[in-house]
Computed example of a mutant assay.
Amino acid sequence: MKIPYKHVLGALGVTLAVISLAPASALADPPTNANDALAQLHDASQKEESVGEQYNAAQSAYQARLADVQKANADLATDQQAEKQAKADEDRYRGDVDRWVSATTEGADLSSMSALLTGQSPSDFLDRAWMLQEVSQFNGDAMAGLDKALSKASDASKKAQQAQDKSNTAAAQAKQVADGLQAQKDAATQAEQAAQAAYNRLTGSQKTALASDKGQPFDTSNVPPGAAGIAVKAALGQVGTPYVYGGNQPGVGLDCSSLVQYAYRQAGISLPRVTTDQVNVGTPVSEADLKPGDLLFFGTASNVHHVAMFIGNGQIVHAPDVGQVVKVVPISGGGSDYYTSRRIVNS
C-alpha cells in the first residue's frame, strides 16, 4: 500500500486512515466524506496499477511467444529446404549406383582381364585399362556419395522433424497466452474504470491538491556522473508530469514503469516496459546500500506492481497514482509493501 496521499490530506486538513490492501470494487459504496473519497481512490489506483502491470506483462509474454513462433517457422523452412536438397543428392547418387549395378548384372565385364583379352594391341589394352580405372573410380565415388547422401538425408529429416515439433510447441504456447489475454484485459479495463470513478468522486479542491503536489524539494548537485546520474536527472526532469495509466509520453503522461524506462533510455540503457520484467534487470542491492539510480520495487514476488527511482538523501522519484503527478517523496512514500531493489548500472 502506498501512502503518497498523506501530504495531500495534510494540506486538506484531514487524516488518512490505514487502507486495506483488499481490491477496490467497481461498485464501491459512495464515500461519505473527503477522507473516504481519497481512500477509495488510493485503493482503486493500486488495484488498477497491479492488474494493469499483470496485463502488460501478459502482452509482453504474448509478443515473445509470437516471436518464438516466427523463429521456429523460419528454422523449419530452412531445415525443410535442407532436407529437400539432401534427398535430391540421394536420388542423384542412387541413380548412378543403380546404373552401375544394372550394367554389371546384365553381363558387362568391367575387369582388367577383359581389357587384356579383348584388346587389339598393347596400346588398345592400356586405353581400355585406363577407362576401366576411371569407371571404377566413378563407381566408388558414386557409392561413397550415396552413403554420405543417405546419412545427410537422415540427419536433415530428423532436424526438420525437430523443427516441426518446436514450431508446434511455440504455436501452442502462444495460443495458451492469447487465450488468457482477453480476461486480463477485461480485468485491467474494469480496474481502470473503478479508479476513474473513484477519482471522479473527489471534490475540485482535492483534485487540484493532487495535481499540484510535486512532493519534496530536491538537489541535483550530488547526482553522480555516469549512466545512473543521467537517468536520475532525466527522471527528475519529469517531475510534474501527470500520472497516466499505461502512459508512455514524457511531459504528457507516464506511469511508474514508463518513467524509469524513459529515464534510463536517456542514458543509453534499454529497460523492459513493465515492473514484472524490470525487477529482473541488474543486480540486487539492499535498501541500506542504495545509490542514486537504483530502482525500488513494491509488491510481492508474484505481484510486483510499482517501481520508483532512488535519487539520494533518502528520497525517490516516481509516478504515483491516478490524479497525481511525477514527484519526489521519501522512500516511505513509495509504499509500505517494499519488496526489493535493483542496481541497473554500477557506475
Rank of each mutant, 00 (worst) to 15 (best):
T15N: 10
A17I: 05
A17R: 14
L21D: 04
L27Q: 13
P30I: 14
P30A: 14
A34I: 09
A37E: 09
H42T: 10
D43P: 01
S45K: 07
A58L: 12
S60G: 07
V69P: 02
A74D: 14
D75R: 03
D79Q: 12
E90N: 07
R92E: 09
A108D: 11
S112A: 00
M113S: 01
A115T: 05
L117W: 09
S123T: 15
W130F: 10
M131G: 00
S136M: 05
M143T: 15
K148Y: 04
A149F: 05
S154K: 09
S154R: 11
D155F: 09
A156I: 03
K159S: 12
D165K: 12
N168S: 10
A172V: 00
A174Q: 05
Q184M: 08
Q184Y: 03
A191Y: 00
E192H: 08
A195W: 01
N200M: 13
K207A: 10
K207G: 11
T208N: 03
L210D: 00
L210T: 05
A211L: 07
S221L: 09
A228G: 04
A228R: 13
I230N: 12
A231V: 11
K233N: 14
A235W: 06
Q238L: 07
V239N: 06
V239I: 04
V244G: 00
G247D: 14
V252N: 14
V260I: 12
Q261L: 08
S270Y: 07
V274M: 09
T275K: 01
T276F: 05
Q278L: 02
P292I: 11
G293V: 08
G293T: 03
S302H: 08
V304P: 10
V307A: 13
G312T: 13
A319H: 03
P320W: 07
K327A: 02
K327H: 12
V329R: 04
Y339M: 01
S341K: 06
